[in-house]
């Protein structure tokens, strides 16, 4: 992991990487002043998106950006990026309950509910980039 004051960067290949990323994301959110429930949501979104990278793409990255300056509204942005197969049935995935990995199918749909802004860029064979933001 490398980091600057406002950025945490994680290479994601195993569930251990996911565990480390979510723990550090939780600490960052708490340090920024997020309430515990919101910090927990940020950590869980990192976990869900990280798990998807491990399950579907094998490897990828998660970047956690924080805007914590005095003059602008604070936020945390999570960017989960992989070069895997992409999401084929995006609408079903967004509806929730759809899975091809044996999970609960809540990763993407649930993460969207936990965050304030949520964007997906994906295409078959083109990988997936999910950007999720939570305002303080």
């Amino acid at each position: 992991m490398s980091s600057s004051p406002n950025t945490l960067f994680f290479r994601i290949e195993t569930v251990h990487d996911v565990s480390s990323a979510r723990r550090k994301g939780l600490m960052l959110a708490m340090d920024m002043g997020f309430q515990t429930a919101d910090a927990t949501k940020i950590a869980v979104v990192i976990s869900e998106l990280g798990r998807n990278i491990v399950s579907y793409a094998g490897k990828g990255t998660i970047t956690v950006l924080s805007q914590a300056g005095d003059n602008s509204r604070k936020y945390i942005k999570i960017i989960a990026d992989d070069r895997g197969p992409g999401i084929k049935n995006l609408n079903q995935v967004l509806d929730g309950g759809y899975t091809t990995s044996g999970g609960m199918g809540l990763g993407v749909s649930g993460s969207r509910k936990l965050m304030d802004e949520f964007n997906i860029r994906t295409g078959e064979g083109e990988g997936t980039t999910i950007t999720a933001l939570k305002w303080l």
Binding site: Q35, T36, A37, T40, K41, V44, L106, G110, S111
Partner: peptide, 14 residues
């Protein structure tokens, strides 16, 4: 279960 965990689980759909 902690309050924050419960809130997150239910909003996630669990």
């Amino acid at each position: 279960l902690q309050d924050a965990v419960i809130e997150t689980m239910v909003e996630l759909g669990m």
